[in-house]
Design a protein around this nucleic acid. Structure first.
Ligand SMILES: [Mn+2]
Ligand SMILES: [Mn+2]
Ligand SMILES: [Mn+2]
Ligand SMILES: [Mn+2]
Lengths: 218, 218
DNA sequence: ACTTATTTTTAGCCTTGTCTAAAAATAAAA
DNA sequence: TTTTATTTTTAGACAAGGCTAAAAATAAGT
């Protein structure tokens, strides 16, 4: 059984591994967790002792299979709880992350088994992120950033990269949510901005926005 | 905001105050929490600093109004989560306590407001214990122990004092649960045992069992 | 009232997880 | 290849919460 702090470290390293080639650096972990590099070094050494990750001084860390599975378990709980909060308690998708950060640390296998069943075995959370299965496996779908699309391409929104409340509320104002179909009407080269069509509305999208929206081309 | 440890102390003291005249003793808290008296003294002094209870050396403690309200808030959460686990996730009433012990420490006003609504504003938890309202008030119903009834009296089971898994499963085997109607057919003076009727079954009930079942006479 | 037993508090130590400041290793620049 | 900058680790400290052993109060017995 792992402590709240240990679980948070494993989860963070798991996420950082996704978009990093090679080991995860001490500083990147510290940044993401809003803590100091020295604290990270301590914890990383402790987790290495426990066989959750491999670590060589000054070389960064990589999760072991056990570590990756544990991390996926925490993420599974996080995302299932987010589904519960949105689907059952009718929270808005920009309100659930902080609460799920707490709920993900509740220890009970049986609870998650039943929650998963109660929710109808969902595959994705309210932000379009895949929910790992019982064994920590995630089936990855090929999705790309809206910014990668070119003029005239059509896509359906399947997720968000940024999950800040501000960004999600911004999307709401434009009636963009998971499942929204959109078409790229134009794209400016010099600043990466786009004009897109959603339903019968057309509007301007900044580069930053386009780089934080995942779509599947259709 | 209070730490998990602080919330557990407040909750325990709240419960001990119910069946104690005068201040709650250091040792009684230690016993209930499976900890050492010296640890209790430390924490009690800290909580006194914070104005959650009044404390005089060697004299025991009493919750302040603030302390009592905070404790009731934790108990409210505990019991609402138990209702969720039983009503929605179909847990058995003897399986939910440990999980609720964890869930009661999730910090989110909004979450509890919505959960309460989702559950239909229940007044009692699965063990028949009253759920404090938003302000920490509990409307107490007059219930008595089955052991207080005399021959021929009829009652309906409204709660359990013991909540151990063993006791609850024992009750299940005899088809006794919250709402069960029963009649005292006989009572032995020398050992306090009883013969009771439940539906068309009659059976023997030990003194210990009778002292852990709450009933309302009808 | 005096002695013994029990309860409660204090003093000192430990673990977890954090921090700051300083040292060591690695990477970048000149 | 030196020198400089950045990253990472170590050393030492601290707060929360717990424990053990010893001292101090209070309660019980005689
Ligand atoms: Mn989240
Ligand atoms: Mn999410
Ligand atoms: Mn309970
Ligand atoms: Mn209960």
């Amino acid at each position: 059984m792992f402590s709240l702090a240990e679980e948070n470290y494993l989860k963070t390293i798991y996420h950082l591994e996704q978009d990093t080639k090679g080991g995860v650096s001490t500083n990147s972990i510290a940044d993401k967790m809003d803590t100091k590099p020295s604290s990270v070094t301590d914890m990383v050494q402790k987790l290495a002792e426990k066989g959750m990750l491999s670590y060589k001084k000054y070389k960064g860390t990589t999760l072991t299979t056990k570590g990756r599975k544990t991390a996926a378990g925490v993420i599974r709980k996080h995302r299932l709880w987010e589904v519960f909060l949105v689907d059952k308690l009718k929270f808005h998708w920009d309100e659930v992350h902080e609460i799920a950060e707490q709920l993900e640390h509740i220890h009970s296998e049986e609870l998650i088994t039943r929650l998963d069943k109660y929710l109808g075995h969902p595959d994705f959370d309210p932000h379009g992120d895949p929910i790992p299965d019982k064994n920590g496996n995630v089936k990855k779908t090929e999705k790309k950033l809206l910014s990668e699309l070119t003029k005239k391409q059509k896509g359906v929104c399947v997720g968000v990269k940024e999950t800040s409340s501000e960004f999600l509320q911004y999307l709401d104002k434009r009636n963009i949510t998971i499942g929204t179909k959109l078409t790229v009407l134009g794209k400016e080269f010099f600043d990466g901005s786009m004009i897109i069509q959603v339903g019968r509305d057309q509007f301007f999208i900044s580069k930053k926005t386009a780089e934080n929206l995942y779509v599947q081309t259709t």
